[in-house]
């Protein structure tokens, strides 16, 4: 017997994560900063633990802001370290995020009694519990709390993309030109990082700290193989994200395994199929070209 209502809430939660993830993930990918998404998703952990601890609840807003701020701080530290002599960006990233993440894991395992968080949640989130954590105001039951949080963050990501589209475009593809026409590229960079941190923190409870990367990077990477035009790439990656969420949920339900892990795996399979298809197309085209050339 399938409980349709909670199934739909779980898929909706996954879909919202995939949509926000695809929106910001495309920019990360095009700026060659995919691993920075990984770094931020690890680095926000101590912020999340502290916010849980201080507010004593899963109240959304203070947690989002506090943890988001720590995520932003970590990108600042990475930036600063990368500019030092004898430091490479990859080493700066590795050191910073592992230190933050280690601190978060240590806090959780030391104070797991006081904090309503465990390491399983860090690893793969609690998407299955989304339908049961309801937001209740007075006598009104407003539906799962996570859905509201994720929808709010999606609105922020959407407004950010639409409002700063031109600035993002220019500073991603031609930073020098962007600066010449008066775009504050540093400001755009930090705003993008802030939105990424927000998306990561909001997704944490649902998909965990590590697998959120699969939602940020894999659908945009697949879309980049398929399309060369940016608006198209964003739309395709959103669609691929939803496809992975639905298929992943079905697989997980059948095999009784982690839902998030299975969504990430399906995402990877979709990427593999796309890669194979583009390789085949290139082969066919080159063979076709040869034939035409010979004729």
């Amino acid at each position: 017997m399938i409980d349709w209502q909670s199934t739909l809430w779980v898929i909706a939660a996954g879909g919202l994560v995939a949509t926000s993830g695809a929106l910001v993930g495309c920019w990360l990918l095009l700026r060659r900063m995919a691993m920075l998404g990984d770094a931020i998703s690890h680095a926000v952990l101590p912020g999340i633990v502290l916010a849980f601890w201080l507010t004593g609840s899963r109240a959304a807003l203070p947690m989002l802001l506090g943890a988001g701020l720590i995520g932003l701080m970590s990108t600042g530290i990475i930036q600063w370290l990368s500019q030092q002599r004898f430091m490479r960006p990859d080493a700066a990233m590795g050191i910073t995020f592992s230190a933050f993440f280690a601190l978060g894991v240590l806090l959780i395992s030391r104070y797991s009694g006081q904090v309503d968080l465990d390491l399983d949640c860090v690893l793969y989130g609690e998407i299955a519990y989304v339908p049961w954590d309801l937001w209740i105001v007075g006598d009104w039951v407003l539906g799962p709390r996570a859905i509201w949080t994720l929808a709010g963050v999606l609105m922020v990501a959407l407004l950010f993309t639409l409002w700063l589209y031109k600035e993002l475009l220019a500073s991603t593809f031609d930073p020098v030109y962007a600066q010449v026409i008066g775009i504050k590229t540093r400001m755009v960079y930090y705003m993008l990082m802030a939105v990424v941190a927000l998306v990561v923190v909001a997704s944490f409870e649902v998909v965990g700290a590590i697998l959120v990367l699969a939602f940020l990077v894999v659908p945009p990477a697949t879309a980049l193989l398929i399309s060369r035009r940016l608006p198209m790439m964003i739309l395709i990656s959103v669609a691929l994200g939803w496809l992975a969420v639905v298929l992943g949920y079905m697989t997980a339900h059948m095999l009784d395994v982690s839902i998030t892990g299975s969504m990430a795996t399906v995402s990877g399979v979709l990427f593999g199929v796309a890669l194979l298809a583009t390789r085949l197309r290139a082969k066919i085209r080159s063979v076709g070209g040869e034939l035409i050339g010979r004729a």
Binding site: M35, G37, D38, I210, L211, A214, A264, T265, S267, F271
Partner: peptide, 15 residues
């Protein structure tokens, strides 16, 4: 890197 990391890890979590 990011793609391989997250997909392999996701598959590991499934297993």
């Amino acid at each position: 890197l990011a793609l391989t990391l997250s997909v392999f890890f996701g598959f590991g979590i499934v297993l």
